[in-house]
Nucleic acid binder design. Structure first.
Lengths: 352, 352
DNA sequence: AACACTTCGGAAAGCGCTCTCCAAGCCCGA
DNA sequence: TCGGGCTTGGAGAGCGCTTTCCGAAGTGTT
């Protein structure tokens, strides 16, 4: 037999602990101990075992290991979508939105270093949700990051009831004892209001997201409250669904209803891009005639022309933090429920 | 005991097949058969078993099942990145790019329906790659979708050597007997060339992506070839890295070197957005002074002003197709290696 | 009524691993 | 020299599931 790592031919049974043990002339238990670095093993045996591992080309079977350790080294990213159904185009929109990518990027920056993989799960129907929770209780994944979508989602409650370590990105719509990481959306909206008022805008409107998303609601509430504080009791509102096209439509509606408006706060950058287009179509200069403030500080913001003044939403950081929170929770399940709220900042550019 | 599904308290041992068998008064084997719908089981027993399942709140343990069936119901999406290292900011850029989201959306549209979950893996180092392949041989996932990044990646070859069902999105840089789904990038670039020439452009340049990405090379080659066919022997070239900012820089460079240019083909929309910005900064009208054609038809294209004339890259469809291809390959491992090439089309809008 | 043939359910052997016991060997002080 | 504590490695019992192998019924034919 040649020295060094043996190439295991395709199709042949893969070497198991038993095989390594046979080659090394020790018991299966000893090999397992060496590989997992448990207890003091005689240095001589130690080396013997590692040689046998190299010789056989042994790789531990994660599945078998997980079955007994109840640890998988996997975290599930679940996108729960209680309203749409299987072939709803909503999902396509969702993935295309930079939101998803930024979250994944933030999560991976932490998980990757810890050698944890991310399993993507989308659950729509009640049945899927039940199965997911069942799988999770069995330890299919060590924990869950939940991305909540429109509506009052039963999933967070199901997860906590099942005792599955979970962290939400964005607060739950209903009060549930679950860890979460969120942005102070209301503060962010207030920042936008302050900025528009400070600029001297007299008639300010808002383009909001769907009413049943907590983040969206908070932005509306925060904006209204701050505007009221500045003496603007009433804020014309039009709503969209976070897509650029919906922003364009909403802007058109606002222009019809409030031809005199000179400022608008848009609940996300994508819609703000649409609003910019509608304003141009209407011959309004930005920021000369109408000042526009977006939300998210996504890559779209600097791509816009004029570059978008927007509220920075440190999504990557938030996702990374939620991964850390989850990992801590997995390590210590008795950890008390906690939430982390990020403070947004205003990024002034050209549009306002 | 109450009728209906029993809520299993947290912390308590989860019901196993054995428990269900005890309640139903049959053997473990019978329960397994009923649950998996194998063979004819007496309808009476059948019902008895399902009742017991409901009563105990039993959910099969996927891990245990996978261990014996060697099927996991999971497909790995591996992003192989042979050049960057663990904390390379490259990854951040990658996830933020709409490319990633579109691929995931396309994959999920197929996988979700089949009840398959997607596990995201990022491999950078040699060691990670080896471990990944080891895990895959053990059936950690039923198959792999590979997203190849810059450079000559050893992963595709490793996967085929290991006999792991795999499909690449984008052709491999080196010839490897692996299934793949790709776009006829050269044809797409030729389309852009034809369009610019037909418009009457006399001095046409190109902003390309990194030289070591096959897709990027194909676009360069296709564009040059078609321009040559139209009598333009030489095409000024500047390269970027697919980000908007790099496109802006590349455009500035081109304007300096070729002040008289009246047309430019940009290898992706994001860079095209940057180019648009640079052109505006330079006081050039698009498409009046300079015609711009992008590539991808991403959501950024319609967001641009003027709206971008671009080459449509049906990435979602391609990803969906690769998922289907992979599933077929998993079902029938003897299936011959095949590739699917999509034909791009030109989407004329305002920029050219 | 006896036979071959099919249908159906149970026993039990794994899948590949971890980890608790336990026995054997060792060193040390008395 | 002997016993008590320590270290070390092996045997073996699972983790929860599938699936082969069999024997026990049930069916139909001559």
């Amino acid at each position: 037999m040649t020295a060094g790592t043996r190439r295991v031919p395709v199709g042949e049974r893969l070497p198991t602990l038993e095989d390594v043990a046979a080659v090394a002339g020790v018991s299966r238990a000893t090999v397992s101990r060496v590989i997992n670095g448990i207890r003091n093993v005689d240095p001589q045996l130690h080396e013997l075992v590692w040689n046998a591992v190299g010789q056989t080309g042994y790789v531990p079977n994660r599945l078998a290991r997980s079955l007994v350790t109840r640890r998988t080294g996997t975290v599930a990213l679940v996108v729960s979508d209680s309203e749409s159904h299987d072939d709803d185009p909503f999902m396509g929109r969702f993935f295309a939105d930079p939101y998803f990518g930024r979250v994944v990027g933030g999560l991976m920056s932490v998980l990757r270093a810890a050698g944890i993989q991310l399993a993507l799960q989308i659950v729509g129907t009640e049945e899927q949700r039940t199965r997911l929770v069942g799988d999770l209780r069995h330890g299919q994944a060590d924990g869950v990051i939940v991305l909540s979508l429109p509506g009052h989602d039963p999933l967070p409650r199901m997860l906590t009831d099942a005792g599955v370590p979970a962290v939400m990105i964005g607060r739950p719509a209903d009060p549930v004892p679950i860890n979460y990481v969120d942005l102070a959306n209301d503060t962010g909206a207030a920042l936008a209001a302050d900025h528009l008022v400070a600029r001297g805008c007299q008639l300010v409107a808002m383009i909001s997201g769907p009413a049943d998303v907590p983040a969206s609601n908070d932005r509306i509430a925060g904006f209204r409250r701050s505007m009221a504080r500045h003496g603007h009791a009433w804020v014309p509102l039009a709503s969209g669904n976070f897509t650029q096209e919906s922003g364009r439509r909403a802007m058109r509606t606002l222009l019809t209803e409030q031809p005199g408006l000179d400022g608008v706060f848009v609940a996300n950058d994508l819609m703000a891009l649409g609003a910019l287009l509608a304003l141009r179509d209407a011959g309004r200069d930005v920021p000369g005639d109408v000042a526009v403030v977006g939300f998210d500080d996504s890559s779209a913001a600097i791509a816009a022309s004029p570059a978008l003044t927007t509220v920075r939403h440190p999504l990557e950081d938030m996702a990374a933090e939620s991964a850390r929170l989850l990992m801590a929770r997995i390590e210590d399940p008795t950890m008390r429920i906690s939430s982390v709220i990020y403070e947004p900042t205003l990024v002034p550019r050209q549009s306002a």
